[in-house]
Every structure is written in C-alpha cells, then in structure tokens.
Nucleic acid binder design. Structure first.
Lengths: 105, 105
DNA sequence: CTACTATATCAATATATATTGATATAACAT
DNA sequence: ATGTTATATCAATATATATTGATATAGTAG
C-alpha cells in the first residue's frame, strides 16, 4: 500500500479490499453474527433466535457477509448452515497486519 | 471477548470499541486521510488539496477521526497540523489481533 | 482597522444502507 | 395434494451519515 494510493481517487485493489472489509464488519448486527458463528456453524433460524432479529434481516446480513466471502454455507435438508470462512479471515488478518505496521512505522 | 457478548444486545465495551473503530475507518475518505497522515503531520489545507475534497468535508471527517482519538492535532499560527495517534493504533492493533485469533481458533 | 487565510460549525440535502412487511420458493411431513 | 418449516428476495420505509453551501471565528498581514 504505497502512499500515492491515498491521494488517488482510484484506490488500489488492496486498499479497496480493506475498506470494503471494514464497512461490512463495521455493522453491529453483522459483527454479532460473525461472533456467534465463531463457535461453529449455525442455521439461519438459530442465528435470528439467538440474536433476537427478524428472519429476513438476518438473511440480508448473511448475504452481505457471504458476498465478501467472510462466511460460507452448507445446505442440509431445508436448513442452511452458515460458517466462518477461516481462509479469508487469515487473508484479512495478513492485510490488516500490514495496514497497522504502516501506521506504527 | 466471550461468546455471550454477541447474543446480548448490550455488547461489551471491547466489542463496542472494535465496532466503532471499523465504522470510522470503513469510510473511504477517512481511510485516505489516515493513509496520507502516515507519512507525517499535515495541515487541513494540505489534506483537502491532496485528496481533492472540500475544506469543510475534510474538517468534518477529521473531527470523527479525532473523536475516536485516531488522530490528534497541533496548532501553529493559523494552521492546525493533524497527525496519527500511534498509541491508539497500537491499542486497536492489539484488539484486532485478539479478534482474529478468535476466528482462526 | 481592513482584508485575507485557515479552519470549524451548522443547517439543508443527498446518498447509502439497515429494517420492515409481504411474498416467493423449495423441501419436508401428513 | 395440502400444510408447514426454513430461507431468500423484493419493494417500501426508516435511519444514519456523507456532502454541500453558507457562515462564524480567529489569527495574520497590510
């Protein structure tokens, strides 16, 4: 992430990825969903019951999380089980480490 | 960050801090400002000229960043020089490390 | 003092996005 | 086939927040 990236309106892919990631997890309910999924996969009904949110609201947040590949799903009978995509979390962790290193010199 | 934190509507201080942090840096122009400040302090006019943004827009984003203590300022004559608060970045880096560890087991 | 520069602030507006309500789909049970 | 359960989707609305335009403040220069 070179310095010209921040002056250009057209930001680099790396920078843009990080920005999208922050936006997606910077929403309380999505962060709560991720936190719940830490302990293992959950079907949608489990999620909205646990977090006391409406079914469709959870469904829409799940879609946002899935679009960014932070979670994935496994279908079993009528239920969809969502789970953390650990691989992508590792990718973002690496990106963030670089991000912070650049701020602490 | 224990698991009950995500089921409770009233989230823990730690969790809430992280969420606020994500929200604040999950905005492109604010992230660009931080990126610009990485290379050292800048006065407001430097920032809005470099990023091609209006003066008052930059001023309002600076306030958000300052409220979260991500940046601080030094006043010299009529100019306000803003700079990264490295200490708080270290704090968030530590928080995030814990956050990611919990997702990668 | 007057004009100018640098910045902040505030109200109005625009825009993005979270939430709700209603409906669709598909699998399953009877 | 009918009813039920689990989930997704879509349009409408609400809400949060980014952006703009105008103005205020305070320091500096003449």
């Amino acid at each position: 992430m070179k310095n010209k990236d921040c002056t250009n309106k057209k930001i680099s892919l790396e920078f843009s990825d990080l920005s999208k990631f922050f936006k997606v997890i910077g929403e309380d309910n999505r962060l709560r969903i991720l936190c719940l999924l830490k302990n293992g996969e959950r079907c949608v009904c489990d999620i909205y019951e646990n977090l006391e949110l409406s079914q469709n609201l959870v469904s829409s947040h799940l879609r946002v999380l899935k679009d960014l590949k932070l979670i994935d799903l496994r279908q079993e009978k009528q239920k969809n089980y969502y789970f953390i995509n650990k691989k992508i979390f590792k990718k973002y962790n690496a990106l963030l480490t670089k991000f912070f290193q650049s701020y602490e010199q």
